[in-house]
Design a protein around this nucleic acid. Structure first.
Length: 278
DNA sequence: AGATGAGCCTGAAGGC
DNA sequence: TGCCTTCAGGCTCATC
């Protein structure tokens, strides 16, 4: 799925067409995604002005004027497609589960073949206290409350491998399987080391490379593997500059002598260079 | 505290 | 061509 960069790209596109406008109509093509859709969703949110569209970790948050927030997670295969009235381009699919129409005549389609995504509604005032927002770690980007010392101290509390710690949304939010491998390779740190073995300079480097890879991925429109496309229907381009992800047995571009390895950590594929990642 | 496996689903890719 | 198996960007739960 969509990791942080893909959700961020989706968020920016939704922001442009939703903020200051409202949803006028919702077409629900099934009663549930991963969880049941909120009851009376149309009555709950239609015609109320949308104050903001934000991203927290891998969640989209849509705040309405009457104090409700729509929580939207894209799961593994979810994608959001925004169509302008002038240029409809989307060919309908049986996996188009929810379709929103907006007061500025846009059509927003939620397509999710695997249906691991979900949509929930909560009072905005309670958002910070509901699962998972009450336990989420800090945002890695544009977050004045995150610095090297805080990141280092959070990693220091865990004996599990660094790769698993990066995927743990309670330690740091938004990192998924692709960008965890990419950032560790950039920082030349082994995914197998215990999180609490990082020195402070290593933590500083890892945080810098995490932020770098996330920013570059956002700028590239995210990564398109199987399902994700940008809301305008274009694919993202970051997959063309993966340095380690899905590159088993390809040459490491750091040392230029070793082929990259693939191992399984906690049931997830990790790609890394055995030689230059220490 | 951490690891592992199962489960939620479908579709793509690879092997035969 | 077609059938079968494996694997996939996330997250949660139970169990060890």
């Amino acid at each position: 799925m969509p990791e942080l960069p893909e959700v961020e790209v989706t968020c920016q596109a939704l922001k442009a067409v939703l903020e200051g406008f409202s949803i006028t109509e919702i077409q629900l093509n099934r009663p549930d995604l991963r969880y049941p859709l909120p009851p009376n969703l149309e009555n709950e949110i239609c015609l109320y002005s949308i104050q903001s569209v934000q991203r927290r970790a891998k969640y989209l948050l849509i705040d309405f004027e009457h104090g409700k927030t729509l929580i939207w997670h894209l799961g593994m295969s979810g994608r959001v497609i925004v169509e302008t009235p002038e240029i409809p381009f989307l060919k309908a699919s049986p996996h188009d589960h929810v379709i929103f129409r907006t007061s500025n005549n846009h059509k927003i389609t939620y397509r999710d073949p695997r249906r691991f995504g979900f949509i929930q509604l909560t009072p905005t005032s309670q958002l910070a206290s509901v699962n998972p927002f009450n336990t989420l770690g800090p945002e890695p980007l544009n977050n004045p409350e995150l610095n090297v010392l805080i990141f280092h101290n959070r990693m220091k509390k865990h004996t599990k491998p660094i790769k698993n710690a990066l995927l743990d949304q309670k330690i740091i939010a938004g990192i998924g399987n692709i960008y965890a491998s990419e950032a560790l390779w950039q920082a030349r740190i082994s995914p197998l080391r215990a999180a609490n073995s990082l020195t402070q300079p290593e933590s500083a480097l890892l945080l810098k490379e995490l932020q770098d890879v996330l920013k570059r991925a956002i700028a590239a429109g995210g990564s398109t593997l199987r399902d994700y496309v940008r809301p305008n229907g274009e694919v993202g381009y970051f997959q063309y500059i993966f340095k380690v992800y899905d590159r088993e047995n390809k040459l490491c571009e750091h040392c230029e002598v070793t082929n990259l390895s693939k191992i399984i950590q906690c049931g997830r594929a990790t790609y890394y260079c055995k030689i230059c990642q220490k």
